[in-house]
Design a binder for these strands. Structure first.
Lengths: 229, 229
DNA sequence: TAAGTGAAGATTGTCGACAGTAATCAATAA
DNA sequence: TTATTGATTACTGTCGACAATCTTCACTTA
């Protein structure tokens, strides 16, 4: 496993503090949809849920606010952030630039083993497509892009990229993602991996950027459809 | 003044909560060098300094940790983050990509008034250069790039860019920035603004990226010199 | 002298409590 | 019936206190 090893629960508890743990937990709640977009977050409720006082909860919420997953109104509480199409557009604008960089770097630095891992995920995605398992495809899609940014070998890049795409997830939770055409999406993935395997950094960068552009277009189409409903 | 209006103190106190205010204050302490890089931050000390309890301080520190300005060790405290040359390199890698995007967008979107503002700052920088006022030049340099990212008209881009460059400031605080050649730097600035005025987005993007690349090279030269001392 | 040990002090982690503010809802008046 | 007012309730903002942990440093011992 060439990727950064996932930390064990033990390591997590020992190194990270309670607020950090809570932060991860709340993030899962948001990204998992249990806390709906726009919803107010009740501190006391979370506190009793996690068997802590409100202190650690508040600390976690501050961190989540800094990462723009929640917004906070004074004396009113913190709310799960809602992303408008306009803001999603802004994010995509940045993402396109970063994806190009990611494609270039992965083409330059990825090990043969990592390329194989990417291909394996691609194959899984094909199977999910065949079964029309959208949920599975979506999870694999996230994994694929996460692996890419990891293989780019730049921690700061990965951090920026993940922060950005987390915002996009808030939007996707409304069910607008991928615009239905996910078989198309995987064709684009394959072209990218081909360029990576060929160590063609320019082409890989261009293709991954193009993939982001197409994703944005799919997002727009889905949003347009959703608005007509 | 076409830029985003600076919020008044009143607005700040009314809208933002105490932790948010404290966060800004601590950030100033760090970026101003009062809290040295690598130094441990004493919660009680800050609390008495700002006449609050430790709660708000801790919340602010969590937010600063999320923005990577401090790091936190369990049961040991939080420390002002130190940036290695390797990490500065990583940041520059991302910054180059973002700068290209910024150049393109500003060329497309900036108002004539904004272009004039940029030129005015450039003139100020020339005067600072003539007086060999490095500190003033440095401040204006930051302002120039901050205006650029603002004029790009993409809040998320601005956010990502500022987060990134804040990290670079931690490095710069060690006196390694600019590598001495700041007259050269302003020549590059002028070329960028020329492209912006000509509405040549491709050239503006290329030049601003190139400027970031040169900045990185200057950083490396300065670091090399610092290491021989 | 150097290494190890123990206590004392300082600092962080967490909690429960109280004050202040916003939201809710019933009662009243137009 | 609708709008307004006032009281009630719920929640956030902040604080001080205590427990747990780390650091420091004097002291002992080989």
């Amino acid at each position: 496993m060439a990727r950064a090893a996932a930390p064990t629960v033990l390591q997590l508890v020992q190194s990270n503090s309670l607020p950090a743990l809570v932060q991860i937990e709340i993030e899962q709640l948001i990204l998992g949809g249990e806390l709906a977009v726009g919803q107010r977050i009740n501190e006391s409720e979370l506190a009793s849920r996690f068997r802590t006082s409100r202190g650690p909860i508040r600390e976690a919420l501050r961190a989540l606010e800094e990462s723009r997953l929640v917004r906070s109104e004074k004396n009113r509480g913190v709310f799960v952030r809602e992303i408008s199409v306009t803001e999603a557009d802004e994010i995509y604008d940045v993402r396109e630039a970063l994806d190009q960089l990611i494609g270039q770097r992965v083409a330059e630095r990825a090990t043969p083993e990592q390329i194989r891992e990417l291909k394996a995920v691609l194959a899984e995605m094909d199977r999910a497509t065949a079964k029309q398992d959208i949920k599975c495809y979506h999870a694999l899609n996230l994994k694929f892009h996460d692996m890419l940014v990891e293989f780019a070998g730049n921690a700061r890049l990965a951090e920026s990229y993940r922060l950005l795409t987390k915002g996009l997830l808030l939007f996707r939770l409304r069910g607008l993602q991928d615009g239905g055409g996910f078989a198309v999406s995987n064709t684009e993935h394959k072209a990218v991996v081909d360029a990576l395997a060929a160590r063609d950094s320019t082409r890989a960068g261009r293709l991954l950027r193009q993939h982001a552009i197409e994703s944005r277009a799919r997002m727009h189409r889905a949003a347009a459809v959703a608005d007509t409903i």
